[in-house]
Design a protein around this nucleic acid. Structure first.
Length: 828
RNA sequence: GCCGAGGUGGCGGAACGGUAGACGCGCCGCACUCAAAAUGCGGUGGGGGAAACCUCGUGCGGGUUCGAUUCCCGCCCUCGGCACCA
């Protein structure tokens, strides 16, 4: 320091220099392996704190900081609360960007990924997060992905994995199929390109078998929002499947029925037409010769439409007659069979019964095609007039034969009974959820361990031959086939069963397979013989606290739950859910706009250089409630910087040495109150109010120092408490001050200080006096003052008397420790 | 359209049904300085008033209550998710 001579005595000689402090402690913690998690520590409960691991895209950006540093603060807090905490970090390192980098600039995907991981690991270490790096894993390593293959084989054995030919979602840009969950608004979730449908054999995981169990979420403490999104995605609906006979229109005297699904069987007497999806197999058979041309043209046109166009709700409903008629089994009526693309081939049975009076879409369709609209569920007070729009709500059965007069809710049950007893159909449950399509026609992923033999068919790779290694040096020409198809050495293998020449499956797995079980691998990352050590899994999993963004609500978080249940069913884990608690952080913006590299950049590195990691960490947590995201301000971070500087000065300047017991009591009161607030807030991830409480305490200490009456003991203990609460939030500066105030390393191995409600309580309390609900006076009264004493004091106040003089007091409300409200009737 | 979260000073945001605006930013004033920066101290919702104090005020309209940002009913707006799911 150059200005020591001119420094006034009240100034500290050494200013807070974050860079030096942070480098020093990061090195020390690493040398000492301070955050290494033992699998069991006597007397401590385990706490598995997990954040959704990152994709190694290249740099740790501000969004990573916003996701990971508050999560780390919480993990650190739990450690100080006496838990044995494991907080691991790794890389979700298979995926398209690596391959796209290979295509666009000839980089090797593995080298590109490894270089990114090295860089990001370095940047992560600048965060000062309490990660146990001994447990780091990367999903692109054979030691990891071989277990994806292992699980795949187990699932195949159990029938959970299967191969099926069908129309799959195809992204023309990424040149691969996608799972339903990865299609948003008819476009690829990753690149935004409109998805098309393509017929091809693909591998699936039978997630639909778990649909009902996945709906059961009472045992997990997750945000309601995520639960709702999962429920909606699974989309369970209960109804009736009912067949409409079309035999007389079938070629060659075949007999057949159109199976339709409805949730409104109470409206079945109002059916005036039946609509098939263009892709429905009966369309070709039922189309009568005179309609053939029109139907063909319609189907061809529908096929050319994109998914977005077809599913737009604004679009006009279109359709065409097949010339065939179907018989309603309940009343024997024949209704026309049409083809319409508002009916989806992928939902229910791909055919619907049209009830225009009681379904908005059917209403529009009927109006357009001049089909009859028959009311069968009457609104209250309905007297036979025509409807201006479809009537959706419940009502009374009419025009429904023997069911007339019943409330529609009851009609639903009775009609379903009748249908079932006559064998016309049955009660059915349908789901929006489809099986998880896991095949990807891409290189940078886990090879699917299957061999196709002309003689033996589909042959699983024997377990002892795992892993099927992803070869290096393949050609990247996005042709719609996996690059692996061009690797002769990879593709051509002898059949494991008969030894004759056979070919390997060349598709790779969806990377969401990798992230479905990584939390298990963190318990035993180096293990060679098994995917994980069951004993250690028992010690650590289910994950106690999972943290990450809500964008994975129906992808990762749903897949992972499914995967856990499938593992349970093959006897590999014992619990039903992978993540007990979940917390979703919100999205960070800058100037209320999305942060993006190009349009609205916010690079953390210069911020760290200027203010230090601790300041950035605290600022991100101070922005607002973590789950609501936050808006970055270049100016406001100064406030945090100033505050930490003040903490530094308070801790290091010479302590006061007064002997005023009142001053000491005041500090003690503030100290205990602080701890109570901090513990409550930190438990609930309310970092912003935690920091506000610490700032208030800092202000209190500053005032106390000004008066100089506080004793050395009281002061020292207050500073100690401040540092202990600061430690999870600003770990470096807290550690440095801990050392400089003469404490033993490390502050991060200390416990949260204790507190007592009684000591946190004030000796006097402010009682607000209201007259008719308006605040008129504030009285300082001894704590715990009784109602009559307080009221007498209030009535003695001149300010209160102004409003009570000559008035009649009707009522007194007394809230202990808070207020008095005098309800008066004014005199005169 | 449906589901979820929100709407509070110039800004980010606090408030078990009990003093609305904690804490911070910004701004204003003062101190320190030749000066500036940094730092420290004080002030800072609107209107009125020299002040004491009065009054209005938490998206809009009602209601419950001694008392409502908070609870209830009906709207408006913003953000996120889903959406021809039969």
């Amino acid at each position: 320091m150059t200005n020591t001579a001119s420094t006034p005595p009240t100034q500290t000689a050494v200013r807070y220099e974050p860079a030096a402090v942070e480098a020093k402690w990061q090195r020390r913690w690493q040398e000492d392996d301070l955050y290494k998690a033992e699998d069991a520590v006597p007397g401590k409960e385990n706490w598995y704190a997990l954040t959704m691991f990152p994709y190694p895209s290249g740099d740790v950006h501000i969004g990573h900081w916003f996701a990971y540093t508050p999560a780390d603060a919480h993990a650190r807090f739990m450690r100080m609360q006496g838990y044995n905490v494991m907080h691991p970090q790794g890389f979700d390192s298979f995926g398209l960007p690596a391959e796209n980098a290979a295509i666009s600039r000839g980089a090797d995907p593995r080298e590109w990924t490894v270089a990114n991981m090295d860089n990001m690991r370095r940047q992560f270490k600048l965060m000062g997060a309490s990660y146990d790096w001994n447990r780091e894993l990367a999903t692109c390593e054979p030691d990891y992905y071989r277990w994806n293959q292992y699980f795949f084989l187990k699932f195949y054995e159990k029938g959970i994995a299967y191969r099926k030919n069908g129309a799959a979602n195809w992204c023309p840009q990424d040149q691969t199929t996608l799972a339903n969950e990865q299609v948003k608004d008819g476009a690829c979730e990753r690149c935004g390109t409109t998805v098309v449908r393509r017929e091809m054999p693909q591998w699936f995981f039978r997630i639909t078998d778990y649909a009902d169990e996945l709906l059961e979420m009472d045992s997990i403490d997750w945000p309601e929002k995520i639960k709702v999104m999962q429920r909606n995605w699974i989309g369970r609906s209960t109804g009736v499947t009912i067949g409409f006979d079309v035999s007389e229109y079938m070629p060659d005297g075949e007999s057949d029925k159109i199976e339709t699904f409805t949730t409104r069987i109470d409206t079945v007497y109002g059916v005036t037409f039946v609509v098939l999806a263009p892709e429905h197999p009966l369309v070709s058979k039922l189309t009568q010769p005179q309609q053939q041309g029109e139907v063909d043209a319609y189907i061809e046109n529908a096929a050319r439409q994109s998914e977005i166009e077809r599913t737009s709700t604004e679009r006009e409903k279109t359709g065409v007659h097949t010339g065939a008629y179907a018989t309603n089994p309940l009343n024997g009526e024949k209704v026309p069979v049409l083809v319409g693309d508002y009916v989806l081939a992928t939902y229910g049975t791909g055919a619907v019964m049209g009830v225009p009076a009681h379904d908005e879409r059917d209403f529009v369709f009927a109006k357009k095609f001049g089909l009859p609209i028959r009311v069968v569920v009457a609104p209250e007070g309905w007297s036979g007039e025509e409807l201006a729009e479809a009537y959706i709500a419940p009502g009374t059965q009419v025009n429904s034969a023997e069911f007339d007069g019943l409330p529609s809710a009851e009609g639903k049950e009775r009609i379903a009974d009748k249908i079932e007893s006559n064998g016309w159909g049955e009660r059915t449950i349908t789901y929006h959820l489809r099986d998880w399509l896991i095949s990807r026609q891409r290189y940078w992923g886990t090879p699917i361990p299957i061999i196709y033999c002309d003689d033996c068919g589909t042959v699983p790779v024997p377990e002892q031959d795992l892993p099927v290694i992803l070869p290096d040096n393949v050609e990247f020409t996005p042709t719609g086939q996996s690059p692996l198809t061009l690797d002769e050495e990879f593709v051509n293998v002898p059949c494991p069963d008969c030894g004759r020449p056979a070919k390997r499956e060349t598709d790779t797995m969806d990377t969401f397979v990798d992230s479905s079980w990584y939390h298990l691998r963190f318990t035993s990352p180096g293990l060679m013989e098994e995917p994980f050590d069951s004993e250690k899994v028992r010690q650590w999993v289910p994950v106690h606290q999972y943290m990450g963004g809500a964008e994975h609500a129906v992808m990762h978080l749903l897949y992972s739950r499914f995967f856990n249940k499938a593992l349970r069913d093959i006897g590999m884990v014992e619990f039903d859910e992978p993540y007990t608690r979940l917390f979703n952080q919100g999205t960070m913006t800058k100037d209320h706009m999305k942060i993006s590299k190009r349009a609205n950049p916010l690079n953390p590195e210069p911020i760290i250089e200027r203010f230090g990691t601790d300041t950035l960490r605290c600022y991100l947590m101070f922005l607002g409630p973590w789950d609501q995201g936050g808006d970055w301000s270049d100016q406001a971070i100064n406030g945090i910087s100033r505050w930490l500087q003040r903490v530094w000065d308070l801790a290091l300047r010479e302590s006061p040495s007064g002997s005023d017991t009142d001053a000491d009591r005041q500090i003690e009161r503030a100290s205990h109150a602080l701890t109570g607030r901090v513990i409550g807030d930190m438990q609930q991830f309310k970092f912003n109010t935690t920091i506000a409480a610490l700032m208030e305490f800092t202000n209190e200490l500053s005032r106390s120092r000004e008066t100089g009456n506080t004793s050395r003991e009281a002061w020292t203990s207050a500073i100690e408490r401040l540092l202990l609460h600061l430690a999870p939030l600003a770990p470096h500066v807290a550690e440095e001050l801990w050392e400089q105030t003469g404490h033993r390393y490390s502050i991060h191995q200390q416990s949260t200080p204790g507190w007592e409600e009684a000591k946190a309580a004030a000796d006097t309390e402010t009682i607000v006096v209201q007259v008719n609900g308006k605040v008129r006076e504030q009285l300082q009264l001894p704590a715990g003052v009784a109602q009559d004493t307080a009221v007498s004091a209030a009535l003695a106040s001149e300010k209160v008397q102004r409003y009570t003089d000559g008035a009649e007091i009707l009522k007194q409300i007394f809230v202990p420790g808070r207020l008095i409200n005098l309800v008066v009737k004014p005199g005169k």
